[in-house]
């Protein structure tokens, strides 16, 4: 067992050893009652497998989708998520917070 941050980097190492492309997502800014603080990490491999979290499970699906695009083209992205609209099935935070997530490919 290891700590959460160590586990993220352990996971990166394992996926790279297996020859998989990896992206690292990081919460860079939060407003209101977003669930995870700045610095929280989510790692994603090219198949969509993931470890860690950038929210309480609300936006991970969308971040994983974008992360696979980042792995494919190597261009970092800054993603913004606001309050979700249940009627529109929009991705967002039901808690009423707002969060920015930076996604980069790990070389």
């Amino acid at each position: 067992m290891a700590t959460e941050t160590d586990d993220v980097f352990t996971r990166i190492g394992q996926w790279q050893m297996a020859g998989k492309g990896v992206a690292l997502a990081t919460v860079v800014r939060t407003w209101g009652s977003s669930p995870r603080p700045a610095g929280s990490h989510l790692v994603v491999d090219e198949t969509g497998a993931f470890f860690g979290s950038v929210s309480g499970g609300c936006i991970e699906g969308a971040v994983i989708h974008e992360a696979r695009a980042v792995i494919a083209d190597g261009k970092p992205r800054l993603l913004e998520f606001g309050v979700s609209d249940e009627q529109a099935w929009e991705v967002g935070l039901a808690c009423g917070g707002k969060v920015e997530v930076y996604v980069e490919r790990v070389e």
Binding site: T5, T26, V28, R29, P37, A38, G39, Y102
Partner: peptide, 17 residues
Amino acid sequence: DKSGPLEADPGLFVRVY
């Protein structure tokens, strides 16, 4: 031990380990 954007330049994000 607090990660966040740099006050002097919010375009720079500091992740503290």
